[in-house]
């Protein structure tokens, strides 16, 4: 997949007058992504808007194919030539959608860093870990030679890799999955970014290692003040790391709220379904309440609310018209009949 030269169709909306206590670091406005396929353009993200504040932590949660990764990768121009992106994603007010490659290269790894699900295959197998960190140091901070060497070692130390000096010379296949994810984080930190996008960073790892990595992310955030966007299918992982959550379903945000609010009283039937369909350690054991049916394929999305075919409370309105994300009292829900049910 070539990752260069995207086809862009940018629609600028006049910025709505906003009175915010703090300007957002990252702002997505009506971001839409479609992929060119044999059957024509397949829309996968249908207009997503959200902000990430400086130092904030936002969790994007949803099942595979819901568009949570695609949304973030679109902002960084990582989707390749088959993607058609419209809408806006700004970093400190500067538009990223349609930005020049040179500008994006400064943003990627420098202002916004990203780590991925499978750390082993996300690192280049033919270069040592140290060289891969030094590459970022050279690109974004102009560090070369001894200085780069010392800084790379400091970063590996910082992310908790023992005997960092030795490990720097080693290759990804010599390290464990957890070590490789730490090395990925070190690479991300090398550019001193303002935002870290972590795309399922612990999904491929064992649970004890997952906990270590989540703790490390929380530590680093506290220390550097960078914002974190955590993409995960696991509500527990989001709850551990984030202050805010956005739940995505079929390319839309269906609910957005602070973590405690969301888990204490989810409003959207999909969020409620997710919370009740998973076994939890702290609850009594009873029958799980699964969400009926399956996620619709993107090319066969229903006309109205995408969740309506699986929703027990769906009305004629739901099948006819997709609900908008409506804000009330510090939270937003995209549902014609938001429910109140305590988890």
């Amino acid at each position: 997949m070539g990752v260069e030269a995207l086809a862009h169709r940018v629609e600028f909306e006049p910025p709505a007058p906003r009175v915010l206590p703090q300007a957002p670091r990252l702002a997505f406005r009506d971001l839409k992504v479609s992929f060119a396929a044999e059957r024509g353009l397949v829309p996968v993200v249908h207009g997503v808007s959200f902000d990430v504040l400086p130092g904030g932590t936002l969790g994007l949660v949803g099942e595979s194919g819901c568009g949570k990764s695609v949304t973030c990768m679109a902002a960084l121009g990582l989707l390749g030539p088959r993607a058609v992106v419209s809408g806006s994603a700004t970093l400190d007010g500067r538009e990223l959608i349609g930005a020049s490659t040179a500008e994006l290269d400064r943003v990627r790894g420098g202002r916004i860093a990203m780590i991925f699900q499978d750390p082993m295959s996300s690192l280049n197998p033919v270069h040592s870990v140290g060289r891969q960190i030094r590459e970022s140091l050279s690109l974004h901070r102009g560090l070369e030679g001894r200085a780069a060497e010392a800084e790379a070692k400091r970063l590996l130390d910082r992310v908790g890799i023992p005997s960092a000096g030795q490990r720097m010379k080693e290759y990804p296949h010599q390290l464990s999955g957890g070590m490789n994810q730490r090395a990925m984080i070190a690479i991300a930190l090398a550019g001193e970014p303002d935002v870290l996008i972590a795309d399922e960073p612990t999904t491929a790892l064992d649970v004890t290692i997952q906990a270590q990595i989540l703790d490390l992310l929380a530590d680093i955030r506290a220390e550097t003040g960078m914002a974190i966007v955590l993409i995960s299918h696991d509500l527990g992982v989001i709850a551990e790391t984030c202050d805010d959550v956005a739940v995505m379903y079929c390319g839309r945000i269906v609910e957005r709220a602070p973590v405690e609010t969301l888990f204490a009283g989810p409003r959207h039937p999909y969020t409620i379904g997710l919370l009740h369909s998973l076994p939890r350690l702290e609850t009594q054991i009873g029958a799980l309440e699964p969400i009926a049916g399956v996620v619709p394929e993107p090319w066969a999305a229903p006309a109205g609310c995408a969740f309506a075919p699986r929703c027990s409370g769906a009305s004629a309105l739901c099948h006819a018209k997709a609900p908008q994300l409506a804000r009330s009292g510090g939270r937003s829900v995209a549902c014609h009949h938001p429910q109140i049910r305590f988890a």
């Binding site: 595979s64 998973l278 309440e289 699964p290 969400i291």
Partner: peptide, 13 residues
């Protein structure tokens, strides 16, 4: 997928 896991667990039981 997350929303399907519960269906299969219930079925097994």
């Amino acid at each position: 997928d997350v929303s399907i896991q519960a269906q299969v667990v219930n079925l097994l039981l």
